[in-house]
Design a binder for these strands. Structure first.
Lengths: 349, 349
DNA sequence: GTGAAAGCGCTAACAC
DNA sequence: GTGTTAGCGCTTTCAC
């Protein structure tokens, strides 16, 4: 009854365990961290007590003591966007497997918020920070932010999915050019020549690259470039896709590349409302291959990144940096094309 | 040049600030926490130094010292599901506003994983835990899990979105009955009598309640109950919706209630493939009102929970419990009906 | 109003 | 192998 009570209320520490086991706290710590040999019988006794009291070492104390918190901070633009959610979960799984915890912050599109989040992660003494989306997506890295990160990186290494010119961040990037090649070759192979590119903004690095590659591919296949088929001065959402497609209809594209699945959904809506069918009248393809691609009708042909592998790569890079290892500062994620129902042969012009 | 160097490299502490300010660490701590009066000039001097070095107090040390980490642990089934993502972000925003950090863990559908996550949060010494989805959704609370939580709650209070019979958890629940009433009244008002209910499992509390209410509403409006119009022995995803609807078609429902937006998407697919139109031939409505409702064509009529308010309520309850306040152990979230394009009048039978 | 000192729970030399 | 001791960086009595 007495031990029962103890068991129930107070938070126990390694001292409590040590005392009852008749050893010192250091010994308990040793079995906890497996950092040195302990006589089997004592080890056994200690394990039993840990079990008995369901003892869990205080991560705060541990982090304080050895100056590594074993947590990875992650900043994403918005987990409500399945692209980020997929990537975050992949990171969480990979981190957990390595004995790390992930701490997620959403910047929710407020770029100035990002600096605050960086500071919060610093307060939490995360061992390394992974930033996905936000200012690391910018074609022109923000001066102030770069300064902030440079300073921060004296203490905490960073891994980003985009870039931050002038910093020593490790970059793990999606190959936007390759992604676009896949899409363009798929469409051109289906005899499309009037290919529109809709959604996103040219101030975003990956979007810029996609547009560049789009033009190169046209040139490569001797297809005339028509500026009116490009609409990349907006957002990445449904509404923008819808609005832009409404205007694009007049230019009679035979195929449309959407900057992501959200935008594709808006484009699909517009096409359907104009009484056209996908893919019989217009083909529609997109980047990201989130579950949205699977939920729409017709299902979208889309570019996949293998989120699990992407997350693993990010975490591996992060842990490498945290350990002070010399790792490659630039790594690429290889995209692949998932063909579904939304793309088909071009109709004869 | 010298101070510059210091500034750049080592992590500074309250002692460094104290030393340079010519005061004791205690005084710096006082201005940091605003816990006592400090002579204005010193305060000023300290603030300047904090600014100069961009000093951030070590949250681990702080948490160790005052035994409150100021972090809220959140366990969700899967943030890749927009329902959880919406709720999580709402919690994060509310928590941040209160000076708290949130630590998110995904159980990813492995119920036995939940106990592990609970322990992990315990290690991190979170002040309180919010669990959304998973075992707290069960109609019959799992015995083992209940024991685990009961024990845990001697130290860390918990808030759940479902229930955990036998524990002292604070329950913040969606009113599933009210949700169903709204849906049923909407459909019945449109003259539907052959209303199907598809998706989910009866072993889940909220689904069970929805089914009960469904029957009550039929009775209330003198509509005969047809068991074949119910399919609630599956999952909550697209595939289940699709498969179930394929079978349901034969029973000629004039309207279908989907257990959530994912399921609704699958149902929509099936209906369309059968050459039927929504809502002209069949009406389709759902619970949750995630962005999926807006992305599908036609847009879904769905039940909304006001995620922002829901998150606030959860966090408020959590902070209340963490502070040891006596708060209501059962709170309801009021649903509302969002009418869009997927529901319309019943065709004459 | 402010400093000294103890303590939060753990890890890591350092002895023996 | 194992105990002793000294921190890790902060908060908080307790004096003065």
């Amino acid at each position: 009854m007495d031990t029962q009570k103890q068991n129930e209320s107070k938070v126990i520490t390694i001292y409590d365990i040590a005392k009852e086991a008749g050893v010192s706290a250091a010994t308990v710590s040793r079995v906890l961290t497996n950092s040195a040999n302990v006589r089997p019988e004592k080890k056994e006794r200690i394990h039993r007590l840990i079990e008995k009291y369901n003892f869990k070492p205080n991560a705060l104390a541990r982090g304080l003591s050895d100056t590594r918190s074993k947590v990875i901070g992650i900043i994403v633009a918005d987990v409500r966007n399945p692209f980020y959610a997929d990537l975050f979960v992949a990171c969480e799984v990979a981190a957990r497997k390595a004995g790390y915890t992930v701490l997620l912050f959403n910047s929710l599109g407020e770029t100035q918020q990002e600096e605050k989040l960086l500071e919060k992660l610093q307060e939490q003494r995360v061992d390394v920070i992974i930033q996905v989306g936000g200012r690391v997506d910018d074609l022109q890295s923000n001066k102030e932010y770069v300064e902030k990160v440079k300073h921060l990186m004296n203490t905490i290494p960073m891994v980003v999915t985009g870039k931050l010119d002038g910093t020593d961040c490790c970059q793990v990037r999606i190959d936007a050019t390759k992604s676009t090649e896949l899409l363009m070759e798929h469409l051109i192979g289906l005899n499309h020549t009037r290919i529109a590119l809709i959604g996103g903004s040219m101030s975003v690095q990956s979007t810029y690259e996609k547009c560049q590659c789009y033009k190169q591919m046209l040139a490569k296949y001797n297809i005339p470039f028509r500026p009116e088929l490009i609409a990349q001065d907006g957002f990445y959402n449904f509404e923008n896709g819808y609005d832009r497609m409404n205007k694009m209809i007049a230019h009679k594209p035979s195929a449309v590349i959407a900057i992501n699945d959200f935008t594709a959904a808006g484009i699909m809506r517009s096409i359907t409302e104009h009484g056209l069918r996908i893919p019989q009248d217009i083909s529609l393809v997109s980047y990201d291959n989130t579950f949205i691609s699977n939920v729409l009708a017709p299902k979208l042909t889309s570019i996949d990144y293998n989120y699990e592998a992407f997350g693993k790569k990010l975490v591996k890079a992060a842990l490498g940096m945290a350990a002070g290892k010399e790792i490659s500062r630039m790594q690429m994620v290889t995209p692949s094309l998932i063909i579904r129902e939304s793309s088909g042969p071009a109709v004869n012009p």
